[in-house]
């Protein structure tokens, strides 16, 4: 338990420093209102980062998440507005569409042994094209039927979307560290040939990981649409880079074999704190970009040192961080 806490402490200290900085610079950053509005903004990025963590762990990458989110969101919009479907049915279809995109990504990557970078780059274009096609390139206003998911409830003022996203994080972490499937994913990333020699077929695990990433993009689409009350075919442009940044800030290796879902979540929080904080102090556009870039690089460099220290202290190779 102590070891687990220790592995989160570096990032936690970093986020506290960020919060302290913005609280000092801005009048109302350190308030319950800001915190709640920040937390209610991150569900989509959170669930997508969970999927991306698994993809990076198997030494893959998924560039299509933003476009798949837009496509799934467009499907929700069209299903509710044009076809008169219920929210549940529309969401079911959106999850299916997302999972399908992910499965295609995974299957092609595995079948022809093509780098997932290029396969998902293709899907980035295909799903975006699909989103424009489905909506006729115009924003669909959905309204009340979808907004409930993002509407704050209870004393804390947190939205159902945020609660679901946190559950996905917990579930994802349990799958990664407590199930055989999660172990296989880590092993594939650490050395796929070893997995093959052990008599395990890595293909189904890999396809499963991409399918999960796609489906979580579909879930992200629901959160996105519910927060904005609309389906926007331009949604999620550049989201893949945000998700990758969050996951890497969280210490998951781009080379595969090492990663943590909970730490990815902290990565998401750091990005959200930065965005909200910079907007709240009214920073100019160039300043925002510069600072965000620097923070990503600094966080990752700091993480390299943390890993080195941990390795020195324990004098053994850590698969799981």
């Amino acid at each position: 338990m102590i070891k687990v806490l220790k592995s989160y402490s570096g990032l936690a200290v970093f986020s506290v420093l960020l919060v302290a900085f913005f609280s000092f610079k801005s009048e109302h950053f350190f308030s319950a209102g800001t915190l709640i509005s920040l937390l209610n903004q991150i569900p989509a990025l959170t669930v997508i980062a969970v999927g991306m963590t698994f993809v990076l762990i198997i030494a893959g990458i998924d560039l299509s998440v933003g476009s798949v989110l837009a496509l799934a969101g467009s499907v929700i919009g069209v299903a509710i507005v044009d076809w008169g479907w219920s929210l549940a049915a529309a969401v079911g279809l959106a999850l299916l569409v997302g999972a399908l995109c992910g499965t295609v990504n995974g299957a092609i990557t595995v079948k022809w042994a093509i780098p997932s970078f290029i396969v998902t780059l293709g899907m980035l274009e295909i799903a975006r094209g699909g989103a424009y096609l489905v909506t006729g390139s115009s924003t669909k206003y959905i309204g009340n039927s979808v907004e409930g998911v993002a509407t704050p409830i209870g004393v804390l003022g947190l939205s159902p979307a945020f609660v679901i996203a946190v559950l996905v994080v917990v579930f994802g972490q349990l799958v990664l560290s407590k199930t055989i499937w999660g172990r296989y994913a880590l092993a594939i990333g650490a050395g796929e040939s070893v997995v093959v020699y052990s008599g395990i077929n890595p293909r189904t695990v890999k396809i499963g990981v991409f399918a999960m990433s796609g489906m979580l993009s579909g879930l992200g689409a629901l959160f996105y649409a519910s927060r904005l009350g609309s389906a926007d075919p331009n949604a999620g442009i550049g989201l893949e880079l945000q998700a990758i940044a969050a996951v890497v800030i969280g210490g998951t290796s781009l080379m595969g074999g090492r990663g943590s879902v909970v730490r990815s979540f902290i990565g998401v929080l750091i990005i959200a704190i930065l965005e909200t904080g910079l907007a709240q102090i009214g920073a100019s556009e160039p300043t925002k970009r510069l600072i965000t870039g620097f923070v990503i690089v600094i966080a990752v460099v700091a993480d390299v040192y943390r890993v080195r220290l941990a390795a020195k202290g324990e004098k053994k190779l850590e698969i799981r961080s």
Binding site: S37, T139, L228, D232, T276, A279, G282
Partner: peptide, 25 residues
């Protein structure tokens, strides 16, 4: 009290508007 770019985008505008509302009561 504030003037910021949201790059014509809906979601970005949502975040920036939320921050503006929190900061300027």
């Amino acid at each position: 009290v504030s003037s910021q770019s949201a790059q014509w985008e809906m979601e970005k505008a949502n975040r920036i508007a939320a921050a503006m509302i929190s900061e300027n009561t």
